[in-house]
Design a protein around this nucleic acid. Structure first.
Lengths: 184, 184
DNA sequence: TCAATTACGAAACTGAAGTATCGTAATGGG
DNA sequence: CCCATTACGATACTTCAGTTTCGTAATTGA
């Protein structure tokens, strides 16, 4: 197998680098595919052969950028959950409303984008689920609230403030919400 | 004052009707301004003289549609808050992720859209704030949690599920969340 | 009646996402 | 060496939001 001309290996990196720089410079809405292609020194068709939409490309850029974001591990599951919430808040704040909203609308229209965006958070979600289980087993949190609902309660307000109300979302707010929800 | 040719009074309604029908038929992303203008039998420029962007137009359509949505009033502020949450969940569910996401992204890019979308919810927010105050005065909810945070906790998860996780959001879920948060 | 002012419609235009076509380049298998 | 296969670049194209221009219509005020 593997017939045909192989892909230019360096091209992926050139595109991601150019897109990342433009994303930082002009935000999601201001990022133009034509300009990414020009900066990367490749044809637009070559870019579209790798990522079928702007949203897919941006998710790839973010995946590279976030790389191995460290997961909290203090040994105390409740404290780890609080720090996890703070980390998510910081990531959302750094990304900004425009970028998050852009990906949300793309995910709403295209299931494959939704899948990619999901994958971006899968690690943290799994860690959170594990921490909740450990905390419940240790009797540190009550079992009267479903674990899924508890996560919605911790993370939902962050997205809500960022996307809907426009209120600032800082790690301290996230910690306060997480502590309150975990005390329920 | 009021010099110059007056606006065609019927035109606003014709545009809103056409836009509303198309919005229901094809959703936010599928709604094309050109087609609204054709269906309404007017020139695109006439439409843009009234609403400067697609998002402004859609907000106007929704404002008409939601009209006088009834506010709960059972006399019990806690129960009213739970029903208010259920009503918001139902409104979001009916609107759908595509529409809500479209408006969110437009609001993120344009402060005047944000203001219009805000106005759409202002009534409910004020009612909610009043109910929270009454409930607190009556000693029905604790004062340890800020009222603003409590609202974030009740509404945030609804948006989060609709826009981010894609989980179903039904009135029963909203009621459960609201009850849990009000018991904090 | 006439001038200023504003609305309307028609049409062309801009910018950006994404598609389609086509000639050319590089690889592997026979 | 040749052929099938895939990648690449160039270019033109489609769609849609939003703008610009311009000729024409309706109104008020003098």
């Amino acid at each position: 197998m593997a017939a045909g001309r192989p892909r230019e290996l360096a091209t992926d990196g050139r595109i991601l680098t150019a897109a990342g720089a433009l994303l930082v410079e002009r935000g999601y809405a201001g990022l133009s595919i034509d300009e990414v292609a020009i900066r990367a020194g490749i044809a637009k068709t070559t870019l579209y052969r790798r990522w079928p939409t702007k949203a897919h490309l941006v998710v790839a850029v973010i995946t590279v950028l976030q790389g191995g974001a460290p997961m909290p591990d203090t040994g105390d599951p409740v404290q780890d959950l609080v720090e996890l919430a703070a980390g998510i808040a910081e990531a959302l704040r750094a990304a900004g409303a425009g970028l998050v909203a852009g990906l949300v609308v793309a995910a709403a229209e295209d299931p494959t984008v939704r899948e990619q965006v999901d994958a971006l958070w899968r690690g943290r979600r799994e860690v959170a689920a594990g921490l909740l289980r450990r905390a419940a087993d240790a009797g540190r949190i009550s079992e009267t609230v479903d674990h899924g609902v508890r996560l919605d309660l911790i993370v939902g307000p962050l997205y809500y403030r960022l996307l809907v109300t426009g209120d600032p979302i800082d790690p301290e707010y996230a910690r306060a919400v997480a502590r309150a929800v975990l005390a329920m």
